[in-house]
Simulated scan of single mutants.
Amino acid sequence: MAMKNILALVVLVSILGVSVAIPSPNLDLSYYKSECRDAEEIVRKVTKEHVGPQKTLAAALLRMHFHDCFVRGCDASLLLKSPNNDAERDAIPNLSVRGYEVVDAAKSALEEKCPGVVSCADVLSLVARDAVVEIGGPWWSVPLGRRDGRISRKDEANLPSPFADIATLKKNFSDKGFTANELAVLSGAHTIGISTCGLVNPRIYNFTGNGDSDPAMNPSYVQELKQRCKPTDSTTTVDMDPGSVEKFDSHYFNAVSEKKGLFVSDSALLNDPETKLYIEKQAKLGGPTFNKDFADAMVKLGKLEVLTGNNGEIRAKCSVVN
């Protein structure tokens, strides 16, 4: 494609609010063109079949992709099972990860059409994108060619904590090559997230050990949460973006700006000038750039420490190494 055509394409997608990846040297937008031409369409169809009737799966699949990429890169190591319960999926932050059946179904469909060709890492990257699109979120191009890792260790699953302060969060993301602004952007994924009262109750009932609530939370929001979460309740679910949990939009930033962030890590975004500025801009103006920003950040996330070439393998089943 001539350079002027590339520039025209970039201008067009910027207007439409979607993101086109500029492929890294090791990933390619047309990677499966010759060996499995319909790969993306197969994954899209399976994802739609699952997420269409169960919208909350979109958040689960997006979270799965994030949790996979932040540990050992985007190598599908999170999908591996261990007979000793010592794989990534057995780590405490991953015990609530769900949606594996969607990835497995997409992989199974691909194996029928193109056996041994498409990696589980690529399937997970595509499923996350297609799940977001299914609930009205932005589309982004996914360069392909990742290979699957053979190692998955529970003790390596050091993921950003919902109880983290802003300094810790910025370091977590900086260590992976993300800016503070991108931390705020990716936190916007909480617009479709849910949690359980077990993670929320310490903030609203006993924040400092004296029976108090977190002063960083809007008092009226604390009362709303107490109506839903009783002190000993650890299983009832709570929307991370009240009133907009099934739609991917910028409403999360309105909630955070009003001190209605569900987690400590959400509220902490107001404690840094750069992340606070981004939140207030999106909240005040109705999220004018959020879709494009999020798409760009997801393209970057999908390239994190990928295995390519002769590294890794193409698993026949996503839960076990070959």
Rank of each mutant, 00 (worst) to 15 (best):
V11C: 11
L16Q: 07
L16N: 03
L16P: 02
G17L: 06
P23S: 06
P25Y: 00
Y32E: 03
K33A: 14
S34M: 00
E40P: 02
E41Q: 12
E41W: 00
V43H: 03
V46C: 04
V46M: 02
H50E: 08
H50Q: 03
G52R: 05
P53I: 07
Q54C: 00
L57V: 08
L61K: 07
D68H: 06
V71Q: 07
G73E: 07
C74D: 09
D75N: 15
L79H: 05
K81C: 08
N84A: 13
N85R: 13
D86W: 03
A87M: 04
E88H: 07
E88I: 14
E88F: 01
I92C: 00
R98I: 05
Y100L: 12
E101I: 03
A106M: 10
K107S: 14
K107E: 11
A109Y: 06
E112T: 13
K113Q: 14
G116V: 03
S119G: 05
C120A: 03
A121L: 03
V123Y: 01
V123M: 06
L124Y: 00
L124F: 01
V127I: 06
V133H: 07
E134V: 08
P143Q: 08
R150C: 01
S152F: 07
E156C: 00
E156K: 09
E156S: 09
P162L: 00
A164K: 05
I166D: 04
L169Q: 13
K171W: 02
N172R: 05
D175E: 15
K176H: 15
E182L: 05
E182S: 08
L183V: 07
L183M: 12
A189R: 13
A189L: 15
I194L: 15
I194V: 14
G198N: 09
Y205V: 09
N206V: 09
G211Y: 10
D214N: 15
P215L: 10
N218R: 06
K226A: 01
R228M: 12
C229S: 07
K230F: 06
K230C: 02
P231F: 10
T237N: 13
V238E: 02
D239K: 05
G243N: 03
S244Q: 06
V245Q: 11
S250A: 15
Y252D: 13
V256S: 04
K260N: 10
K260T: 08
K260H: 09
L262R: 04
S265E: 10
A268D: 08
L269Q: 12
D272L: 10
T275N: 05
L277W: 00
Y278M: 00
I279L: 14
E280A: 01
K281N: 15
Q282M: 14
A283Y: 09
L285C: 01
P288L: 06
P288W: 03
F290L: 13
F290W: 10
K292M: 13
A295D: 06
G302M: 04
E305K: 11
E305N: 14
V306F: 01
T308D: 05
N311D: 15
G312E: 02
I314C: 02
A316V: 10
K317E: 09
V321M: 01
V321G: 12
